[in-house]
Design a protein around this nucleic acid. Structure first.
Lengths: 238, 238
DNA sequence: TATCAAAACTGGTCGGACCAGATGAAGATT
DNA sequence: AATCTTCATCTGGTCCGACCAGTTTTGATA
């Protein structure tokens, strides 16, 4: 009945990718190390070479591994050469245990992205936009009681993405989507810290600023919200 | 002898992905349309179903397509649900023909990312950092004559990425890498517009500000550089 | 000792076989 | 006639073995 969607049977590829990801992020292998060949790993793990190959392609896309064609596969210096997928891999593996500096950098970026969208939306918003935002805010309020925190986090993510969509700055929407996983991790923490009703009230305050075309007000609400969150995070960990 | 690395023989998968990408971005298919089945497309294009399947997986990662498991594959509303890979796909296909608003949004984001890195580096820079930056700047100057503009663009990208690395804000580096393709397109345009020597001089001015620990000076140099570029872009297109 | 060809690697690509969920039409039940 | 059930036939999902083509090592030969 619950909306859990755990995969009952992980595929060979998933098993392989998870294992290597774990081994690299845990430091078992170091940047520059040459990994065993696809054939070796395939035999060791009892799976076909193609599966291992596809797994390595995914690991390369995540920036954890560097493929030197026809020669070998090496552990990448992922903190230098990685990308957002690398960050997602770290977040998905470590769960809540994100370093404070990482969280801070991510939030600064979100401020940059969404702040720009907010300012733009304040200038161009129509009555329909306001009505639309009110509508989806009500939706969240209505179903907030019988919903898991992760599902709720997704709703909050979508609400803020809507800001980007309505602002007309399509590139910002694309950016917002690329930090989806990281954002969910943030919202889960946020909702646990402040509670749902407080978070929903903030959404309504945003709408108020947008309706009044108050660029700076909207931006400051976002900025102070983030600052406040970081301050509380500080307290919690002390 | 040239450093051209064109693939002599594109693989089936590449052919397939390119074709569908073209068809979607050109508007032959519209968001929500159901595409022909993997088997149909495979037969039509004379390739195996697995190849088509892998191709669709890549297209899904690019945000161009939405896979409804065991049911069908649909064209995604990629401007809403896409990510940076989508943007890369657009850039790689259209080449120089990027809309002004897109360019502006991308540069605003770069300002957010790199601006933060610059401020941080101004505060924490060591003598070694300065020497390192001087060294790689000299490298660029030395080999700038006998180098194609694309290769030079890559060097400029790496220079600015180095700012992120040295700043210690590792997340910024990861972000910088995710906008690699888009950045290269920018630098190619930039170098053509201002010339190499002007661009190198700007690098040295950055180093000066960083050495003086002048946060605002460094930030403003970046900001005014971007503004100036956008203004020139305006003139050019008129 | 230096050279160079062959053997033994490496990753790269592909298509066929098979699996399982989704769908919809045909037939049975009410 | 309306509804439910069943099942053939769609769909994508996964995997493996065969084969291809560079790279690296080996070792015989000059």
């Amino acid at each position: 009945m619950k909306s859990v969607k755990k995969k009952p049977v992980p595929t060979h590829k998933e098993v392989f990718v998870k294992r290597i990801t774990r081994e690299i992020l845990s430091g078992k292998w170091n940047p520059g190390d040459k990994l065993p060949s696809e054939r070796e790993l395939a035999a060791e793990m009892g799976m076909g070479k193609t599966v291992v190959h596809n797994g390595f392609e995914q690991l390369a896309a995540m920036g954890l591994v560097y493929i030197k064609p026809k020669s070998g596969i090496f552990v990448a210096d992922y903190m230098k050469t990685g990308n957002i997928e690398t960050l997602n891999a770290i977040v998905n593996l470590n769960g809540d245990e994100l370093g404070r500096d990482v969280v801070e950098a991510i939030l600064d970026l979100r401020l940059a992205i969404e702040g720009m969208a907010l300012r733009a939306l304040c200038l161009c918003r129509s009555e329909d936009d306001i009505a639309h935002l009110r509508s989806i805010t009500e939706d969240i309020r209505d179903c907030s009681d019988n919903m898991g925190v992760e599902e709720l986090a997704e709703r909050f993510f979508l609400w803020h993405r809507e800001i980007c969509i309505l602002s007309g700055k399509s590139v910002l929407t694309l950016f917002m989507n690329t930090v989806h996983d990281v954002s969910i991790a943030f919202w889960v923490k946020y909702l646990r810290m402040y509670g749902t009703s407080f978070a929903i009230e903030r959404l309504e305050r945003f709408i108020g600023f947008i309706e009044a075309r108050d660029c700076e007000g909207a931006y400051n609400l976002l900025a102070t919200g983030i600052d406040d969150y970081l301050a509380n995070l500080e307290k919690q960990t002390m």
